[in-house]
Amino acid sequence: MAKWAMAIDLDRCTGCGACMAACKMENNVPIVEPDEALQGRVMHWMDMITEYGGDYPGIEIKRMPKPCFHCDNPPCTRVCPVGATYRNEEGLVAQVYHRCIGCRYCMVACPFTAKVFNWKDPAWIEGASTCFNPDVSRRMVGVVEKCTFCSHRLMKVKETADEEDRPINDGEYVPACAEICPADAIYFGDIEDKGSSVYKMSGDYRASRVMEDLGVEPKVYYLVKRTR
């Protein structure tokens, strides 16, 4: 069974934000009204964290793209009272919108604030002209959503691979962010497959995971020079 994981090379990443836009377009993530957005209700499945370090003028700014980490020991799934979020056999942490009752316990439980809530009916702000990706359903008011590692792409890739009676090749299934990253900073694949790029990257000396001491076993690895 494949286990899907991601590695983000922060030494390559420039923080341009293209992954954020790609994600929003791919997954029909709502654009909220401007006043809502300013209240912090912006919905990004792929967010960007900015960290400052150093003393002037030796300032370091590091920007870090942050999707859902699809933890192997996810805290969010344990608190869900209705089984609307769970981890499947391939390591994807899924969100079942039609079961979600909007209690937002999982948002509180997630140490990485990866989940976002539909505060309003996703009207995409008045008259918004949005072209929807037909492969992804749109969500409704009162449910929590988050990055799925573009699992809708996996369905199609699996179908084709099964049809041709072969395993899924490395790089055949990648989320939208990894596909368009102009810095080629995002690696994605089956971490159990020793030939995959993500397996190699996760074992790199620069690789680490966020808040590893929590024991939630995130499946997103960040690569950054130890000295920085």
Partner: peptide, 30 residues
Amino acid sequence: VSIRGNPHYPVNLGGMCSLGLNALHMLYHP
């Protein structure tokens, strides 16, 4: 329905910026 970079075009080799990814909204702009 969506845009991605042309992986063989030598200027961007499949990479995109956020603005270009959003170009369809210009097409469908109300």
